[in-house]
Structures are given as C-alpha cells and as structure tokens.
Design a binder for these strands. Structure first.
Lengths: 373, 373
DNA sequence: TCACGGATTGAATCGCGAA
DNA sequence: CTTCGCGATTCAATCCGTG
C-alpha cells in the first residue's frame, strides 16, 4: 500500500508532461496522458489537400503549396481511419467537462465533422475564420477561398459543465453576443516564424489572435490545453501568455525546436490581467430576505411588475403576496405572468422618486457593500 | 423504328417536367427525369435538428422551433442513407458539366459533405452565408449561430466545363474576386410567404438574394435548375426571374400550392438585362499577326518585357525573335523568363510617347473596333 | 403623413447545483 | 438517480398602434 504522504507528494507534483512538447505520433504519444486529464484541445490536423500540378500566379511566380509528406493520404478511407484514431485518443484524455476545437478546410472538415458526430462528440458551434487577406484564386475558376472552418464540440451529448466565458466574449464584442464568424488576418509579418534563410518554418502556422480567442472563450486560467498537432507551437505560445498550461504532440524535430524556442521567449501576462470577467452566476448569492433585514425594503412595501400591471406586497419572511397567492419572488413572478419560470430580481420593481427600479438594484447595493476588491 | 420526323418533334418539344413542380418523394420523383438533363441543382435538405425541450426567450416567449415531421430522423444512419439516396438521384440527372449546391447547418452539413465526397462529387468551394440578423443564443451558452454553410461541387473530379461566371461575380464585387463568405439578411418582411392568418408558410424559406447569387454565378440564361427540396419555391421564383428554367420536387401539397402561386406572379427580367458579362476568355480571339496586318505594329518594331530587361523584334509572320530564338509571343515570353508559360499579351510591351504599354492594349483597340453592342 | 415606441420573430442540437 | 429551487438569458428587422 502506498503511504499517504507519497500520495500527497504525487498529487502535489505537476504531471511531467505539463508544458512540454511530446515528440512522436499523436495517438501513441497521447498514451502518456491519463484519462480525463486536459481541459481543452485545439487540433489542426493535416487537411489532406489534393492538389494537382504546380500552380503559378499570373506573374509566373510559383505558389508555395502545402505538399509536405505529412499531408499525403492514399485515400479517403485512410484519412478517415487516421481521423478516427486521433479523435478517439483525444476523447479519452479530454475531461467530460472539456471541449475540443478542430480546424480544417473544405478538403477535410466535412469528413472530420462527420467522424466526430459518429464518435459521440456533440457539436456546440461551427465557427468560420474569415481571412482578411486570403490568397486569391489565380485561375478565376472558383470563388476566392477566403475562410476556414472550426468545429467546437463537447466530448458527449451531456454537455453540462463546459467552460464558455460568455460575458467576456460579449464584452469583447461591443456588448453584443460574439457571433460564429470571426475576422482575422492570416499569420504573417513578425509573427510568422522564419528560419535563417528567411523561409517559413511551418506552411500552415495559425495566427495567435485566433488561438487567443479560442482559449479566452473556452478555458480558465490554469487550465490545460492540448494540441495534438503542435506544429510551430501557436497553441503553446498563446496558452503560456494567457496563463494556461499546454501539452503539445509533434512528430518533426524541426517544428519542435522552433516551437520550444518560441515558447521559451514568451512572458506570461500578469495574473490580474487574466482575471476572468465574473459571470453573474458566480457573484455571491444574496437572499431576498436580506434586503428586508438590512432595511432596504420593509414588510408591507409595494412591488410591481415592470409595467406596473401586477402588484405584490413584501412580507417579513422574504416572501411576496399578491391577492390569494404568496411565494418567493421568482415563483410569484412566474405565477402572475402565467409563465413557468421568472427571475424575480429583474421582474419585481420598487418605486423611488416616482421612478420604478428592479429590486436587482438593491441586491447590487448589498453586494457592493460586501464586495472583495 | 421511330421516324426521323417524330424524333425531331420530340427534340423540339420541351420536356414536360420543365418549369413544373413534381409532387412526391425526391428520389422517386427524379426517376421522371432523364440522365444528365439539368445544368444545376440547389438542394436544401432537412437539417436533422435534434432539439431538446421548448426554448424560451428571456422575455418568457416561446421560440417557434423547426419540429416538423420532415425534419425527424431516427438516427445518423437513417439520415446518412437518406442523404446518399437523394445525392445519387441528383448525380444521375446532373450533366457532367453541371454543378450542385447544398445548404446546411452544423447539424447536417458535415455528414452531407462527407457523403458527397464518398460519392465522387468534387468540392469546388464551401460558401458561408453570414446572416445579418441571426437569432440570438438566448441562454448565453454558446456563440451566436450566425451563419449557414453551402457546398458547391462538380459531380466528379473531372471538373472541366462547368459554368462559373467569374467576371460577372468580380464586377459585382467592386472588381475584386467574389469571396467564399457572403452576407445576406434572413428572409423576412414582404418576401416571406404568409398564409391568411399571417403565419409563415414554410419554416425555413431561403432569401431570394442568396439564390440569385448562386444562379447568377453558376448558370447561364436558359439553363435548367433543379431543386429537389422545393419548399416555398425560392429557387423556382429566382430561376424564372433570371431567365432560367426550373424543376422542383416537393412532397407537401401546401408548399406546392404556395410555391406555384408565387412563381406564377413572377415576371422574368428582359433578356438584355440578363446578358452575361462576357468573360475575358469568351471575347473574340485576336491573333497577334492581325496587329501587324492592321498596321498597329510593324515588322521590325521593338517589344520589351515589363521592366525593359528583355527585348524582342516583331517579324512579319507574327512571331517574335530575340537573340538566337524565335517563337510566338507566349513561347518567347516564357523562354526569356525561364518560365513554363507566359501570357505574351500582358508580358510584351511597346513604347509610345516614352511610356511602355502592354500589347494587350493594341488587342483591345482591335476588339473595340469590331465589337458588338 | 411621419415619428416613435412597443411587440414580434427568425433552421436552436441553449443551466446548474443542492438535496 | 430524480426533483426542485434559484435565477440567468436576446439582436436585428419588421410590423403595428399611437400621437
């Protein structure tokens, strides 16, 4: 039997694979990770591009296409088997409350998405990355391919408990909900990793802005983000900067070297720059009765619906009464509307200086008086 | 043996299904159409939404969800079999030079796209319909689902000969290539079909603007457009207005009645409003030698590369000579650059008033002098 | 007739934790 | 395991009634 002290030491010691790049094939390498050990996954698998010959621009320059060995598959069947294998490995290491992001183009994303559904992943959104500066269609035979597609999914249809920083996304988007179409430039300029001869290190390096939104939307500080196709390490770089842990898997030593150097140069942001915008649910709970106890409301006070067409009286025990029926602020609000549910805090209003205000405002006063900094 | 005159009469008589709505299941109904008989297909199949209970808005009103019987499938397997069947039927009736459009959401589009690839369709683009006014995410648990996806494909990987009105799309897009992300409002207002009680006739009526861009981009006037899930008939209405023929297949009589009345009320646009923008390739061909024949160039004239670093002389037979080598404007242009191919019309320049101009300008003068209106 | 405000609505896989 | 209480949650556009 293992002594308790040893167990405690083990629990306290961080996993050896945390914040490292594991060299090897993604399915084999993931066997080093326990079940349900990562909070989020970003996967940028080979797109299985099926290119014909060499493509030239109108000025005769050659398009530097993705023709690397790792993007070559003999058939759809082979690609599907590959997809199934890495998705299963990812599903095993992903926490039930975690989520996975997969990016692809029309060459592969339909096969990947269908396989994800077959394996029980539950799609939460498909997100379109609209490129500000996509490559033109040189032959003029199709529309300019100006976007890529990401699938955001839960590992099963019991989607309870996954992280979505709704309020942060909304605040970042001028206080309206973040949409499923995102606009970003492709990775270029100083952000693009180059070797000594100025050649790009990786043909499909993803922009940090894209990973930043992904990580900020669906993980919390301290979470572990896995990237099974680590490449040039954008996921690791952004995770480190944003105070998240990363694990990368990559087969090619050149990519590993470049990614490691890149990540080593990253300074994480200060913790107070990463403090998540508190969701309303995470605010301390205030019982309605404490408004009475603190004197903000008194028994017998008159509350109304937003338009004043329903009236209720405050009782000393923190219930409301309206006509023959009494109940909590929520139940009575639902009842007078004939609705199944109601947020009593925003439904019931009190009057002050001739104006109606929701009692949520009084709750805010209590919270402010007891707030931590 | 059928007399020749009967064959001719048959050829002259339009097919009985042209510009009609065929009632019935799409696979069975398409058996009425011969092989390779339609130029384009727009398919808006059931999305297979898998909704939980009722969804309420923050104001407690109920969301009118798509819960029609035609969108119910027992499993992914059943949906896949359904998809395979109608795609095969479509593939048979589609001309080899025709193309197919399929629209869907993340619920079904990945399965549909994978099945299309399995059946040998060759994807030309995936197109994102970005909605200006999508429904919000009421619970704040996901990103606002603000787009749908369309797949544009050729029936096989020999994609030669399909219609893509590149220049018209480019001209319509402020003279830059049309991208793969399109912005349109959802169908509402006066365009949305309503019954006598003001209820929407069809839960998922598509906007005419969307079909208009599809038809204008990938068909020619007089082409036949098939819609195997005709619904409220947007495809037929837009096809008729744009001078294309349509065929619809629809199971529900209510939808057929509404669609037929809608189409009957459409006035086709005048033919000269539909004249396609001539693509550059379809402009009358001009032989280089005709520039000499018409006196715009003379034998012995000096042509240069765009930067003046290569020089060639015009010969009377319409070839160029540079140093030891001679050849067409295209071959010699490629040769002096060490390139495989070259557009000699834009590569070779003549000098006028101290400025260099491509000889394409002289070609333009010849075309203008012989142009039709 | 126009301006303004309130009501309605659209392909939606839409909560969480304590008891 | 289920049940139940708490209470969080919407954007753009059209339509309609009122002044």
């Amino acid at each position: 039997m293992v002594p308790v002290s040893a167990l405690q030491a083990k629990a306290a010691r961080p996993a050896p694979w945390l914040d490292t790049i594991i060299k090897g094939d993604c399915v084999a390498a993931l066997e080093n990770l326990p079940d349900h050990s990562v909070d989020a996954i970003f996967a940028d698998p080979p797109y299985n591009l099926q290119l014909g010959g060499v493509l030239h621009r109108p000025d005769q320059s050659k398009v530097d296409a993705v023709d690397d060995a790792w993007d070559q598959f003999a058939s759809f069947e082979v690609y599907d088997a590959f997809t199934r294998a890495w998705l299963l490995a990812c599903k095993r290491v992903l926490k039930p409350t975690g989520t996975i992001w997969v990016i692809g183009s029309y060459h592969n994303i339909f096969r990947v998405g269908a396989k994800m559904q077959d394996l029980g992943f539950w799609i939460l959104n498909d997100i379109v990355w609209r490129k500000t500066n996509p490559m033109p269609n040189f032959k003029g035979r199709r529309f300019q391919n100006a976007h890529e597609t990401m699938i955001w999914a839960s590992p099963n249809s019991e989607t309870k408990g996954y992280t979505f920083n709704y309020d942060a996304m909304k605040a970042a988007n001028d206080d309206v909900q973040m949409r499923s179409d995102w606009l970003f430039p492709i990775c270029s300029g100083g952000e693009r990793l180059k070797d000594e001869e100025g050649r790009k290190v990786h043909p499909t390096q993803k922009p940090e802005a894209l990973l930043s939104r992904i990580i900020l939307s669906s993980t919390k500080p301290g979470d572990v983000v896995l990237d099974p196709f680590f490449g040039s390490g954008t996921t690791g770089a952004v995770a480190k900067r944003l105070g998240r842990h990363f694990v990368g898997v990559e087969r090619e030593q050149d990519y590993i070297d470049a990614a490691q150097a890149r990540i080593d140069a990253i300074d994480p942001l200060a913790a107070d720059m990463l403090k998540p915008l508190p969701s309303k649910k995470s605010l301390p709970r205030v019982a309605f009765v404490s408004l009475i106890e603190s004197g903000l409301l008194s028994p017998g006070d008159r509350l109304t619906s937003p338009k004043g067409d329903h009236v209720a009286l405050v009782r000393a025990d923190g219930t409301l009464v309206s006509g023959q029926t009494a109940g909590s602020i929520h139940r009575l609000g639902a009842q007078v509307q004939g609705a199944e549910a109601c947020n009593g805090w925003t439904y019931w209003h009190y009057e002050e200086a001739g104006k109606r205000h929701p009692i949520d405002r009084l709750r805010g006063e209590i919270r402010a008086a007891t707030a931590e900094i």
